[in-house]
Design a protein around this nucleic acid. Structure first.
Lengths: 237, 237
DNA sequence: TGTTGTGAAAACCTTCACAGCG
DNA sequence: CGCTGTGAAGGTTTTCACAACA
């Protein structure tokens, strides 16, 4: 994608397909962005794929291929302009606009999520909080009032919520999800240990602590002794 | 694998390799386990791959292949014995033993994690809590005393911690990680927005809220209108 | 019959290695 | 010279489709 026309590919005659970006790449772009932001704050102007890849914990060739998908333009023999690349990644991830987030379930975990500072930082404003518990409804968390779940359809639609977070018990998750989808929410982050079924066109991602722990448990039990499978140093995001 | 010897493959002459289980499969086994547990509680005795797959939000063929990796034994024309399969999956995931977990950083998120009930439920006991903040050190959360991070090496080793959770700010994460690895911890769940570098043989998994949100943002911005890319109903874990 | 287990094909992702350019 | 961008190779994961079997 070297210098010429930046977004070549299309698939069907009327619809421009901006060179489909692989799922795996999208997930890593978010990681690169964090590293780039840090570098920018430190005053770094230019970075090579080697250095950026190391900081992000990935292979350099993979990073270059990822960037090639977003039509990046590094300079051979030099590297990437940190500032320019940051903007490109932000643009691709849709972070140039802000996103109104609704969080349902302000119990243990939900409360922590509502108070998490990293949100507003990146243009994700907590636009609404919901719960069923009458004890919690009416209270204020991080400056936002907790509303009754019955208000989900009305409030999500009114406040233009684009991303919903489900932090309810498993039993309530599907119902809450349906309410949000009905209100036009198209992207949901699910913390409840339940499978959500949604109509096509709605994106669900899941964060499941129990699953993560069990994957780690698997690896623990594979190495009862102190065997070291490989001698190279590994880096993880 | 049908009926005969259950774990055939080996690779090197002295070391039995129990038929390497793909990463992707391990992650899904944890999901199947949750569904199986629910079914067991409901008194379901037998389940087909179709039904189990639907409940877990995956393709039936994929589920069968996953189960084939753990040497499962369903009955043709009937399905899987829920109770037996549950035990098999638990065994493969290493959940027959309990795991001592240490959590470092009991701020906003860490506090919520410490109080999260789903832990003990599955044999993950919170064996130790740590923080730097003198205000927090000495307090008790969910029945466990918060200790100073300086105690990490001694206490983790003494209490036989096998899984560590890092819920500190990014700047402290690597240091905390090093301390745990030094104490013999081989599996780490990282909530801090930082890349951890660890010696080979240590497994790190990462949960990053900001990354998840940005992936969703990407999908939001790909669908500014109400286009529905595909007509089939989708199910997500 | 109904359902599993599994080869084979397809899709997807990663890594290598180097031409090409600044 | 150093570094990017990428074709090609290699690996992993998903899906298909059907033989085998209770």
């Amino acid at each position: 994608m070297d210098g010429g026309v930046s977004r070549p590919a299309r698939t069907s005659p009327g619809r421009v397909t901006p060179d489909r970006i692989p799922q795996a790449t999208v997930a890593r772009l978010a990681v690169y962005l964090r590293v780039l932001t840090e570098m920018l704050a430190e005053g770094v102007r230019t970075v090579s794929s080697d250095v950026l890849a190391a900081a992000a914990g990935v292979n350099a060739a993979k990073l270059r291929k990822d960037l090639s998908h977003i039509g990046s333009s590094g300079v051979r023999g030099v590297g990437y302009d940190v500032s320019r690349l940051t903007e490109q990644v932000e643009s691709v991830l849709g972070l140039t606009r802000s996103h109104a987030v609704a969080l349902v379930g302000v119990g243990n975990l939900g409360h922590a999520l509502a108070g998490y500072g990293g949100f507003a930082q990146r243009g994700f404003g907590v636009a609404a909080l919901f719960d069923v518990d009458p004890e919690l409804v009416g209270t204020t968390i991080a400056g936002v009032e907790v509303l009754d779940v019955a208000q989900i359809p009305r409030v999500c639609a009114a406040r233009g919520v684009t991303i919903g977070m489900v932090a309810t018990p498993a039993a309530a998750a599907q119902q809450v999800c349906d309410a949000m989808v009905g209100a036009g929410v198209r992207s949901i982050l699910n913390f409840a240990p339940a499978v959500l079924s949604v109509p096509a066109g709605v994106e669900v991602r899941k964060v499941d602590l129990a699953v993560e722990m069990q994957i780690l448990a698997f690896h623990v039990s594979r190495r009862p002794d102190g065997t070291i499978p490989d001698a190279t140093e590994k880096v993880y995001g």
